[in-house]
Amino acid sequence: MIEVNKDNFEQEVLKADGLVVVDFWSEKCEPCKALMPSVHELAEKNAGRAKFCSLNIAGNKRLAISQKVLGLPTIAFYKNGEKVAELTKDFTIEDVEAKLNDLA
């Protein structure tokens, strides 16, 4: 997983080719932290198919809001810099995997 923030988001996500998955989270979001190990596992399994990034919204709130993310947990999918899908609030790791398989 690549740590993204307001300084490298443009480079790593918006200017990237192919599929990028961004996991928005924060230290205070318990459901986010519960989900995280399985997201990491998914990232490892699918290393060649998509780029996996995690974005801690602490210090990056404006960036998150610019991406129309205003709630956690949220996982957004970008293709060639365009947001193509998003999962927010009640979703499971299986939903993430299914979406990934759809898009990759």
Binding site: S26, K28, C29, E30, P31, C32, I57, A58, K61, A64, I65, K68, V69, L70, G71, L72, P73, T74, E86, T88, K89
Partner: peptide
């Protein structure tokens, strides 16, 4: 608007609303 401003969990989302 769930996750777009609508929330049921203050600790999860309060940060955004500084």
């Amino acid at each position: 608007f769930r996750g777009k401003g609508v929330s049921y969990c203050a600790t999860c989302d309060a940060d955004f609303f500084e």
